[in-house]
Structures are given as structure tokens and as C-alpha cells.
Design a binder for these strands. Structure first.
Lengths: 301, 301
DNA sequence: AGGAACTATGTAGGCTACCTTCATGGAAGT
DNA sequence: ACTTCCATGAAGGTAGCCTACATAGTTCCT
């Protein structure tokens, strides 16, 4: 029973094809195929079966893939216990983040990591809410967000920790009739025109909540991801938009007004596979991110 | 964090020297030494330190050795889960046993294993009560005994299952003055002469109990292990002896009388390391041994 | 229908890492 | 002082994992 084989099966279960596993593990598909054969020979079980142009795990293969997490976690816990004997945690921690959350949290993290033996390696991406969970395969830690609840979809079996709750404010062009209000309610927004995000992205659920509260549909003009671009188009009068408070700096053409009476906030959360989270350095980074998040909440209260 | 390295450390912790580990794992001492160096390099920790002409685990090495069992158990459990999907358990199960318990239990085991895919590989040895636990490193299963309680000394952290309780009877030469009694008490035995076992062997605790009950010391003539030899010497009038009921067959020169009023029985137990016990075939063998033990208890009631 | 793009998998060869053999040096016991 | 037992080093064989390249099947697009 080789740990290597269990991890291989886990990769196959998640990624679906040998080619994808090969790319993720920086090997050739041939190597992965041979390794799989070796596993089948040593275990004496058929682990995969061909299906259309790819393959699929058998029931036994799926079983072993499911158990791989437990094994990896126990092993990582032993490593963490050793680490904790050796003094300060250290090493490389790879972080994947959505850009806005990274912009808000990473400066605080980097400042707090000064003087420690921990190095971080950051990559950013912008995904629908459900896409973040899968990224935990590629990074020790994924900074994701969720507007509906505190746990993003697809995070079953993952460690999930809320780093901060961030208000989502309404951005309006300076000359807008609602710009003079100190705060806005759902009913104020009836008939307004919006720059929205693609369906499945967290901010959309706030617009849905406004529509549910008033019973009136909102008009969605564009579907954009990048918040800087959104801000510029708000200033240009293309429509209103929801923007996260921590990272939206004053823009000459726009004002930001809080939305009250509807759930208008997102949770910034850290996601990690249990085996990665067992590493002491990873846990430290999550702690420091939560510190940075608490600081932001206080600052923007 | 290689499983192989954890298991290596566990072996070192138990066996003390690299030479002993090398012999137990069928490798040369040089290979073991190199492997240990590799582990130290990969983990970045000193795992052993030289002491007199051998070596000793450092605190970190000891920590990892202690955790090896947990890792091995999780891994073996996964293997067992797979096995249980594949139908009947099978494979090789190595058993170490003390001779008398083996004689009593193994025929019943072998009969019950007919038609299964399980092969057993038996080796016998006769040890002091505390010696059996260490043998679980060399065998999947160790059949041991204990007279004081149901768990032999040194079995901490091991799976321990009672297979049968076996009465220890008093063997007397046919012409002995006590041979006419149907059963004997401690006070009957004051002043008698005994063929005993080496100190630390289970039967001795019964003699100690008799002495404690009467306040009178018993005379110990010889210290023998082999029960056949003991029987012959009892017949020759060298003294009385305690003999296990299940395997002591009628001998022309001796009679067997039950001893009442003192704890005169031994527990036959199966010992196994948790990681070995996780294997389904091993568990089956223990179940069948317990069946065989129950049959013996009924037969000799 | 034919080709392009994808899938897995086979073969040949390189390279790494494990093991063995042989040799060395230190510590303890006689 | 000699023997014995310990760990460890250097040199070489071998097995297993990987890459590169070639092959065959499936799906999709034109």
C-alpha cells in the first residue's frame, strides 16, 4: 500500500484524465499511466476502466482515492508535530487568491511575515464561487469569497476559515440623484441600471436579494469582473455597481454609499485541504491573514 | 515525510541497534545506515546520536518512531477496507506461539481455515510472560499466555484478545498420598515439592498464590519449560507440577487434579500490533482462534 | 467522409536511488 | 593486546521511475 499510489488516485478522481494529472504533477502522461499500472499490479485490483476517449475510476479505485486524504492528513500531522519541536515554522506556502481579496489582505500578511522563516508564493485568479475549492489542489491556501453564506460552494471536506466580512457598497457617479443620500435601501434602487458580474459570481446574489426585497427586476447592462474597470464605467455613467469596501479607493468620478436592509457583504475566507492545513507554516499564514482581516474590519467600520 | 523512514525509526526504537534492524529487515547494516542518513537529510533533523558503541534516537527521532504506528495503522486500515470489497480475506498470516497453546489451538485453527484463501506460517518459542509482546514485531499474530491477569506484561499499545481460559491442574505421581482426592486446595499442598518454571513464567504466579494463601513456602526442585519433560519427571516422583489441562494427555505414571480456592488458570491470548490487526485475514485468524478456544473450554469443562 | 485534436498506452533508454560487498575505525569486554 | 561488535564509508550492480517518441482509439469539426 504505497502512499504515492493513493495520492495518484486522488488526483485522477479530481482531475478526471491522466493528461490533466500529468500536467498538474509535472510528468508525462506516459509516466502517470505506467505508475497506475504499477499500482494495479501491486494491489491486485483493477483501478480504472476505459470510457469513451478517457478513463474512469472503478469502485475500488474511487474508494482508495477517497481514503487518500486521511492518509495524507495523518502524515502531515506527524510532520507538523516534528516542525513544532524544531522551533518556528518555516518553508514555502503557496497562496492562490482572488485579486481584490489579495489586494486587501496580502500587504498585511507580508508585513506580519517579516522576520519569520515563512516564504509565500502568490498567484491570483478570478473564478465563480464554486471554482475556488478545486484550486486547493494547486495551492496550500486559497483565499476565496462568498456572498450567500460564509462557506463557498464546493468546500466540503476542506478547512474553511473566515478572514473578514467585507461590506459591499453601491458605487454611483458623482452627479447621480441618489449620491446625496448617506445610505441606500433596496427600495431606493428600484429601476436603476447596473454593471453586474457574470452569473455565479458572489456579488450577483446581492442584486438578487435587492430584487427579492422590492419585487422589481434590476437592469443589468454589462457583466464584468475587474473592479477597476467597473469603477471607471460607473464614473462614466454606464450604471451603478457593487464594490468591496476594503479595496475601493476614492475615485474622482464616483461615490460609495452603504446599502442597508439587505445582506450586502461578502465573507473573505481561507480554504485549504486538511493535509496542507496540517503544516504549521500554513496554519500560521491563516492566523496572520485572519489578523489582517480583523484589522481591516476595524479600519473600515 | 516517507512512510519507509517512519517504519525504519520504529524498528530502531524497538531493536536498539542498526545491526539488529538490519537482520530483522533482511538487509545489511550499511543499507540501514545509509537509509537513516537519507531520512535525516530529507527531514532536516538529526535523528540519532552515537552512544558508547551503538547509537540512540534523539528526541525528534523518538517522536517520529512513536508516530509510526499511527501511520502504519491508517494505511493498513485502508488496505483492509479494500480487501473487504474484494470478497474473502486471504494471504499469508504469520503466527508465533508458545508450544502448549499452539498444540491446543492450532489444530482447530487449521481445520477452520480449510477452504479459505488464508495461509498460516507458524513458529514456536517459549518465553517469559513479558517476552511475547516484542515478538509481535516479527509475526502478524502472537499467541501468548498470562496467569496473573488477562493481559500479559508489555502488551501496552497492542491489540490483545483472550482466546480461552485454561485451568492449570496439579500433576501428581499415581502413588502420591494426594492422588486419591478429587480436587485439591492450597492447604493440601503445604510442604510439597515442586517442579517449577523459570521465574517470570506464568505458572510461577500460581505457586506464589498458593504460598500466599497458606503462608508456607513451597519447595522448588527444578526449573523446566517443556511440559512433556515435566510430566515424565512427575511420574518419576521428582515432585508435583502445574500442567495446562487442554494439552496434558493421560500419562501412565501421573494423575491430574484440579486446584480450587486459588486462581489456577492461564489466559491464552492473541497479541498483535494494531497495523497488523487491521488486515482482514489477521482478524479472521483471531476470530477462528477464539472459536477454537471456546470449543476447548467447552470440551474440558 | 476526412482530418484535427484529444485520449491512453506501448517501447527504448537515461538517471536516480537503493542495496550489496568490502574495508575502516571506534568502543567495550576478555 | 586481542577479539568482538558496533556504525559508516566507497565502489559497483540493479531495479524502478521518468522522458521521448510512436501508436491506436474516440470525438468533434469542417
Amino acid at each position: 500500500m504505497e502512499v504515492r499510489h493513493l495520492l495518484l488516485l486522488r488526483e485522477i478522481a479530481v482531475r478526471g484524465t491522466l493528461a490533466a494529472v500529468a500536467e498538474a504533477t509535472h510528468r508525462t502522461p506516459s509516466a502517470v499511466s505506467q505508475q497506475l499500472r504499477t499500482a494495479e499490479r501491486e494491489l491486485g485490483v483493477k483501478l480504472v476502466e476505459p470510457v469513451s476517449r478517457g478513463l474512469r475510476l472503478t469502485a475500488e479505485g474511487q474508494l482508495l482515492a477517497d481514503r487518500a486524504d486521511r492518509v495524507a492528513t495523518v502524515l502531515a500531522e506527524v510532520g507538523a508535530e516534528l516542525e513544532s519541536r524544531l522551533g518556528e515554522p518555516g518553508g514555502q506556502v503557496s497562496i492562490g487568491t482572488l485579486p481584490s481579496a489579495g489586494e486587501a489582505l496580502l500587504p498585511g500578511l507580508v508585513r506580519r511575515l517579516k522576520g519569520t522563516a515563512i516564504d509565500v508564493d502568490v498567484q491570483d485568479f478570478d473564478l465563480s464561487e464554486a471554482g475556488f475549492a478545486a484550486k486547493t489542489l494547486d495551492h496550500d491556501l486559497v483565499i476565496a469569497h462568498s456572498a450567500a453564506g460564509d462557506v463557498p460552494a464546493g468546500a466540503e471536506g476542506l478547512v474553511c476559515r473566515v478572514l473578514a466580512h467585507e461590506p459591499l457598497d453601491v458605487a454611483l457617479p458623482v452627479g447621480h440623484r441618489l449620491a446625496s443620500r448617506a445610505e441606500l435601501t433596496a427600495s431606493d434602487l428600484v429601476g436603476t441600471r447596473w454593471i453586474a458580474v457574470p452569473a455565479g459570481f458572489p456579488f450577483d446574489s446581492v442584486l438578487l436579494a435587492i430584487e427579492a426585497a422590492t419585487g422589481q427586476p434590476l437592469q443589468r447592462r454589462l457583466r464584468l469582473i475587474d473592479n477597476r474597470l467597473v469603477e471607471a464605467l460607473v464614473a462614466a455613467g454606464e450604471g451603478l455597481a457593487l464594490l468591496p469596501r476594503f479595496t475601493t479607493r476614492p475615485h474622482p468620478g464616483t461615490v460609495l454609499r452603504p446599502l442597508v436592509g439587505v445582506h450586502a457583504r461578502r465573507a473573505l475566507v481561507a480554504l485549504a485541504r486538511p493535509d496542507h492545513y496540517a503544516r504549521r507554516a500554513v496554519r500560521s499564514v491563516v492566523d496572520l491573514l485572519a489578523d489582517a482581516g480583523a484589522e481591516l474590519e476595524k479600519l473600515f467600520h
